[in-house]
Every structure is written in structure tokens, then in C-alpha cells.
């Protein structure tokens, strides 16, 4: 359990890092910085808190689980290849007119001056997350 959770945290951090690279490449450095700081920092902290409340599993179960997992995903590469070939053959993506919207106001102005409601929403989501972690994982009813 613990190992899997830690792996998922690493995965999350990696995804977030890749996402911010993509955002940077797409010419929005501020969004990239936000992504990196919020996701890698804050969410990881919450997850580590969660991990600290869990217990480890025994070695034997871990081995069994590893074997099971291998068996479970044996057919996956095959499916992916077949699906890929099929998609390449038959899928015709409709042509969207992807006109880039006119350059809007500066991201900083958008965030701090125009989108108060969303900013408040982000704060409340974090609050709800903290409540969730505390209520579900930390408290024990006596």
C-alpha cells in the first residue's frame, strides 16, 4: 500500500513537471510556474500526509501482488498495437478551425483582478481537501 501510494505521488509530480514543460513550450510560462508550484508542492504535501497514516504490507503479499500484476497486463501491449493500427487505418479526424483566440490580458491581471471567484474556489477546495484528510485519516473515534 505504502509503496504504491508513494509511487503514485512520484507519478503525480512527474506528470505535473511534464505538464509544465508543455505549458512552457506552448508559450505560457506563468501557467507553467503555477502548475509546478501548486501541483508538485501542495498536492504532494497532502499526499505525503496521507501516506504517513498508512501501514505497510508484508513481503509475501507484495511478491504475490507483483506476479498478479504482471499476469494482468500481459495482453496490454497487444491491445495497444492493434488499437493503434486500427485507429491509423480508419480514424479520420474532422478538420477543426483552431483559430487561436486573440491575445487576452496578462495572466497576472487575469488571476488577481478578474477571477476572484475561481481563486476563492481554489482556496476552498484546498480547505475541503485538508478537512477530508484530517477527518478520514487522522481522527480515530473513541
Amino acid at each position: 500500500m505504502t509503496i504504491r501510494l508513494i509511487r503514485s505521488i512520484v507519478g503525480l509530480a512527474l506528470t505535473s513537471a511534464i505538464l509544465s514543460v508543455i505549458m512552457y513550450r506552448l508559450n505560457s510560462p506563468l501557467a507553467a510556474v503555477f502548475e509546478l508550484s501548486v501541483c508538485s508542492g501542495l498536492i504532494s504535501v497532502i499526499f505525503i500526509t496521507t501516506v504517513s497514516f498508512t501501514q505497510r504490507i508484508s513481503k509475501e503479499r507484495l511478491l504475490i501482488r507483483r506476479r498478479e500484476r504482471l499476469a494482468r497486463f500481459l495482453y496490454l501491449p497487444f491491445i495497444i498495437i492493434v488499437a493503434g493500427v486500427l485507429l491509423m487505418q480508419y480514424l479520420k479526424i474532422p478538420q477543426f478551425d483552431l483559430s487561436v483566440p486573440a491575445k487576452g490580458p496578462d495572466v497576472r491581471r487575469v488571476l488577481w483582478n478578474l477571477r476572484h471567484l475561481d481563486l476563492l474556489g481554489q482556496v476552498i477546495i484546498l480547505l475541503a481537501g485538508v478537512f477530508g484528510v484530517v477527518i478520514l485519516f487522522k481522527e480515530t473515534d473513541k
Binding site: 477571477r115 471567484l117 475561481d118 474556489g121 481554489q122 476552498i124 477546495i125 475541503a128 481537501g129 477530508g132
Partner: peptide, 11 residues
């Protein structure tokens, strides 16, 4: 904003 607050309700 609609989406953000839908998420809050869900969390």
C-alpha cells in the same frame, strides 16, 4: 467558475 464550484461540492 461553475466547474470549480461543482468540484468543491463533489470533494
Amino acid at each position: 467558475s461553475l466547474y470549480v464550484f461543482m468540484e468543491i461540492t463533489a470533494v
